[in-house]
Nucleic acid binder design. Sequence first.
DNA 1: GATCGGTTGTGAACCGGTTCAGTGAACCGG
DNA 2: CCGGTTCACTGAACCGGTTCACAACCGATC
Lengths: 359, 359
Amino acid sequence: MNRFTIICITACRVNPDSLRGIVKHRTTIRELAEYTGLSPAAVSYALRGKQVSAATERRVREAAEKLGYEADPIARALAGGATAVVGLLVGSLADFWTQELVRAVQRELYGAELSALVADADGEPARELELAQRLVDQRVDGLVVVPIGPASGGWASIARQLPVVTIGDELPGVAPAGEVVFDNELGVEQALQHLSGLGHRRITVLSWAVETSPERDAERAAALSAAALGLDCRVVPCAYSLNGSQPLAAELLDDPGRPTAVLCLSDSIAYGVYAACAELGLSIPGDVAVAGFGDHPISRLLAPPLTSTVWDVEQAAECATSFLSQAIAADGPQATLREVVAPVLAVRASTGPPTPRRG
Amino acid sequence: MNRFTIICITACRVNPDSLRGIVKHRTTIRELAEYTGLSPAAVSYALRGKQVSAATERRVREAAEKLGYEADPIARALAGGATAVVGLLVGSLADFWTQELVRAVQRELYGAELSALVADADGEPARELELAQRLVDQRVDGLVVVPIGPASGGWASIARQLPVVTIGDELPGVAPAGEVVFDNELGVEQALQHLSGLGHRRITVLSWAVETSPERDAERAAALSAAALGLDCRVVPCAYSLNGSQPLAAELLDDPGRPTAVLCLSDSIAYGVYAACAELGLSIPGDVAVAGFGDHPISRLLAPPLTSTVWDVEQAAECATSFLSQAIAADGPQATLREVVAPVLAVRASTGPPTPRRG
DNA sequence: GATCGGTTGTGAACCGGTTCAGTGAACCGG
DNA sequence: CCGGTTCACTGAACCGGTTCACAACCGATC
């Protein structure tokens, strides 16, 4: 059998202009240098307003405008510059409040001309540090963390490499660039006082299943015991989502000796309690009073509307972004910026006085 | 006044090993080359299993393992390789269903060892393309888009540069790498049939305020008119969020000639209607029946539980990620992968027969 | 034994910025 | 007029990979 080899040589002289729009060519700094008659180094400096005369800077800027030059973020990152990307690491994206926080942070970052590389530990504390390292490898300029894991040495090492801002819980011993702290201690105290005031004595706290450091654990225990004067109060760790809390709540409430009130440290958890109550035919707040934490926009639409502790996500996001921007601009270790967000208890119909049990 | 100049010279001989853990040093490909006695090029090839003998490949892999070598994603990206980052561009992160989708996509991407650069157009269609371009500039390997804007020429150009997968609406004329399509036409038809079957005649559809292309607009109009046989059906565009829909719904319902049923093309919109009803003292479904779209996990917890059209976010996310992975691996234009997700109407207590009006 | 084709591996250029050391020119006080 | 600064800019190295063109080597074929 014969084999034919067909050779086809086409001489092709393409006018570069005709490629515009088909293959996009980014203007490089060297082209800009040639155009302005300067060296690439001078252009690089000029664009960042350093070490050049005002006249040159203006000339370069005009040329950049004209040629539509924009620095390649990847090349800039490799050379050690900023990427304008920050990492946003959350403990559990399944939690509705966290979702709202992500939205708010995204909006703020857009205003600050930053992009976000979002990572979700999906409720597994062990995954947190690995994801953080991955973000660092991507050369993010900074990190916003909503921690659920313990504050290990790995965090300290990361915080030394780039600015880290925490939202919600702290990472003790890490010395981040900024902290937006929720005063959980006070929040829990207020909520328990409210329930206690209504006459509840047997209360269960559904806490998030966070692998806290000893200090934070102690903090929380202290808050609980302090506020719990005279209260029969149990703390149960719980998955940070609706699907996680529903079965746990069902088990907890399907018992004549059930608590008269449940305080959930996240609205997502409270939603699971609602679902469990519906399943068991228990009425809220008649059979069991329920309070949440975070105050998701939907909570006031539930039946009954959910009593919840308001944590302002907009404020938290604004602070965190501002802290991070400052730390990135400062470009060196500074004192930790800190903002404590005060809890406000929004009392709604899901909490009322306990009804006396027959038996 | 005297000036003292203090010169302090400290001869400092640092053992490189002692710096470990203080400043993290990434092993580079050249170090790995030196260690194995090969050239950097050979190592690069070996790590990607190309053009090298099996023995060499094994040797390099072992050395990489031993030295803890991991390729720098930034350098790789600059050299034209893959970044293992994909862009996730959503029309409105304020929409709860979109939030769920983002969560699901994140989880899938984690499984595929990809990271996500998330961008939110925040309900503004004009912002969509700009954000997409920004993601392309960041050298993402691909793009997952939940579009709200029109399919302009800009999209076609982007789809030619990298794989694009759409979820939900399509971008006609763009030829993306993959499409996960929601059959909105059928979904709307089913919902309207349900309402019609209950006896509703005057129905308002609160649609998302999407700047659709003519084709999609026509599609939707066709679906509506086809299903709306005998129905007095009005379509009103609405912001894609609770806060956006509540005032609109309040205005719409504060009118004796109000519709007997409202079909919302997103659960977020329906939540706004619930809020408006609470405000106006209208009962659901007695005074007005309400149906949603998307079936957010919370919807079944509302009072009354919301009738909604189920769009499975897990399935959509899985498909989209799979399509994108395939397209990235194929590394060249392929036929568009396509999956149509069928709507399933979950009937709950928020829809019932209309009550006759007095007057 | 010369030629050929295929496999492995190398050297160097390249991606597109940043930055350091160095050079000339202008400037200044003595 | 001279030594010392400061200013504005340049050349070249560098970040850490990828890839192209080519060389060395091998066995098989004519």
